[in-house]
Design a binder for these strands. Structure first.
Length: 607
RNA sequence: GGAGGCGUGGUGUAGCGGUUAGCAUAUCGGCCUGUCAAGCCGAAGGUCGCGGGUUCAAAUCCCGUCGUCUCCGCCA
């Protein structure tokens, strides 16, 4: 070993010891006589002090070598740990009470000047540059911390589940394409002309087959692949804690995961959990109150329904929305009644992104008059003149608005209303700074619909996936009222991010056949896609269910990163490219020939 | 597939129709024994992403294009 200690671990305990350190020059302060070098390794930073040339503390030449060192040079330093003289401690450094007086300094490797700052904590470097030089970006303290946190989280999960009799089992990466769900990444087969593997979107079918195999308790830290467009919280390849159990019901899995998340949080986060046991909301409740199926419970601002109040209003926008099967719902902007018109216009544009045609607003500037009415003097609104007095009173009452508050209203289809107000709720919280970031707000969302109607395909589709079981009492209405059937499915949500979801599966091939029939899949299609699974279920499949947690998102939340890219060592850009290795890239004609592949004219080249 | 933001010395940015393209920091040289965002003096460093257009004149306005970020669609 070139080193006896890690830089960041030295303390007053080590005073007097002769140590060998090796690491990178974080910063150098050359006073001509004295030279200070902040030496950095993964553990942290320690100050190396090189005394003037000829000092008894050092070998000949050490000062000269130290004066040649530059940022990011790789150094080995031998010297004695010394308590810093009084008044020269650095409280900003964990090792700030001591310093290492250099006896011998050696440059193990010089370094080019890095293309961006590594040593200053600022996070303001162009991300494309960080990604191109990711190996330098990862030297930064923040990134080392994120990778360490990720390791600790995964290690805890492995231990927790192993202690509960789970087996970690690997499943294939080269697998089979299924047209359902996300777009697959496909891999051409050399040995089988014109045939392809697909990378798994998740190990879903394999973990169910492991249950048929009698494994009973399985987990895997699994890489998953989906060829869909990216977002800040979505990468084409991502990591899930994939888990499946036999002989359980939804509550068992939820209890297991909830305990794991609570213990994990205690281990890796200084923040308290807002509420335990985790609140449980039905999907219907979540949509009604928050407009999303992954509510951020760190703040209030519930949506309220005004459909009944304005169903017969003179105001056509409201009346027609209700008459057409839509909804009129609102949200409160606390102390927003005096917002500039420009702010309101910005929020109107904001909800239009989600399909809303407009945003009605009523500023409540004063309390009601003696008869309980909110008259013109108490309101600031572009629509109040179209509304009857009792409608206005009803709206204010339903909103719970106090003087000074602003009521914002959307009238549209239930889907558009929910989406626009659900997102507006987050926007208001950001604008008014209402998000309590000192807590972690977990919750469960349950009782999802089993099926949703796809207007484009004119058929029913599985909301979760086609192996999800309906609630026992709902099987009877599968064919008669598919849209009303609720699933034994559950999502776990943290601070408004869906961090996981799962379900109890169908283990009975008769019920599975009925579901496929409702999904409009004919026998041949089912056999081609899922035949192996259905056949397996005929050999004594245990009742089973599971869950998958998004590791990248979890780590990002604990790390307070805004993008999962910051907790992935080598992530891809929003266009799915890797800027460091330059992927994807063309392959040679020889490679294509072996794969029996001919390329069509590229779209770009055709122009 | 669509919408929007950004692109100026290595890095971060100012400039938004006429500037010698400014500042900070990094880099290089000199001085310096207690700094920790060290300091002081000096130097070097720019095809203003790329292409076209408008104009007497473009970093600046317009169009296209490339890269990147965010969002919508998409993500069982």
């Amino acid at each position: 070993m070139l080193k006896t200690h890690q830089c960041g671990q030295l303390s007053l305990q080590n005073v007097g010891e002769e140590v060998s350190l090796a690491g990178w020059v974080n910063r150098r302060r050359d006073h001509g006589g004295l030279i200070f070098i902040d030496l950095r390794d993964r553990s942290g930073i320690v100050q190396v002090t090189v005394e003037p040339e000829g000092s008894a503390s050092q070998e000949e030449g050490a000062h000269e070598i130290a004066s040649q060192a530059r940022n990011e040079y790789v150094l080995q330093v031998n010297g004695v740990v010394r308590e810093r003289p009084e008044g020269f401690e650095n409280p900003n450094l964990t090792t700030g009470a001591i310093e290492v007086i250099a006896r011998h300094v050696e440059i193990l490797n010089p370094a080019k000047t890095p293309p961006f700052y590594i040593s200053n904590g600022a996070d303001d470097v162009d991300e494309a540059l960080r990604l191109k030089y990711r190996y330098l970006d990862l030297r930064r303290t923040r990134m080392v911390q994120n990778l360490t946190l990720r390791h600790n989280i995964v290690r805890f999960i492995r231990e927790y589940l192993s202690n509960r009799d789970f087996l970690e089992i690997e499943t294939p990466i080269l697998l089979k394409s299924t047209p359902e769900g996300a777009r697959d990444f496909v891999v051409p087969s050399r040995l089988h002309e014109h045939e392809f593997y697909a990378l798994p979107q998740s190990p879903q079918q394999l973990k169910q087959l492991l249950m048929v195999a009698g494994i009973e308790r399985y987990f895997q830290i699994a890489r998953c692949f989906r060829d869909e467009d990216l977002r800040a919280d979505r990468q084409p390849e991502f990591t899930q804690l994939d888990l499946e159990m036999s002989f359980v019901d939804a509550q068992d899995i939820r209890a297991l995961i909830e305990e794991m998340l609570i213990k994990l949080t205690q281990l890796v986060s200084p923040k308290p959990i807002q509420q335990t046991p985790f609140p449980v909301l039905s999907y219907a409740e979540a949509m009604d109150k928050y407009g999303v199926d992954r509510p951020d419970l760190r703040f209030g601002l519930p949506l309220f329904t005004l459909s009944e109040v304005v169903a017969n209003s003179e105001f056509g926008v409201f009346r027609n929305a209700v008459a057409g099967g839509g909804q009129v719902k609102g949200i409160l902007y606390p102390q927003g009644a005096s917002l500039a018109r420009r702010d309101i216009d910005e929020m109107t544009d904001f909800v239009k992104r989600f399909g809303a045609k407009g945003l009605a607003w009523i500023g409540v500037t004063a309390g009601p008059d003696g008869e309980g009415n909110y008259g013109p003097d108490a309101l600031r609104s572009q629509i109040s003149k179209f509304l009857a007095q009792d409608e206005i009173n009803g709206i204010v009452q339903a909103s719970g608005a106090q003087a000074g508050d602003l009521i914002l209203i959307v009238a549209d289809s239930p889907a558009v209303t929910a989406q626009s107000l659900g997102n507006l709720r987050l926007e208001i919280a950001r604008r008014a700074d209402l998000i309590d970031t000192s807590q972690l707000a977990f919750c469960w969302v349950t009782d999802f619909p089993l099926l949703e109607y796809n207007d484009d395909l004119k058929r029913w589709q599985a909301v979760h996936h086609p192996f999800t079981s309906a609630r026992a009492e709902d099987w009877a209405s599968l064919e008669s009222a598919p849209g009303d059937v609720l699933a034994k499915a559950y999502d776990v949500v943290l601070n408004g991010w869906e961090i996981g979801g799962g379900s109890i599966r169908i283990h009975n091939s008769e019920l599975q056949d009925r579901l496929f029939a409702v999904l409009g899949l004919n026998h041949d299609e089912v056999q081609a896609q899922f035949g192996h699974l259905l056949e397996a279920f005929q050999y004594g499949a245990p009742p089973h269910g599971g869950i998958a947690l998004g590791i990248d998102r979890m780590v990002a939340l604990y790390a307070e990163a805004t993008s999962i890219r910051d907790v992935i060592a080598f992530p891809k850009t929003a266009a799915g490219t890797d800027l460091m290795v330059n992927a994807p890239s063309p392959v040679t004609t020889e490679q294509l020939d072996e794969l029996h592949i001919a390329l069509k004219q590229a779209k770009k080249a055709a122009k």
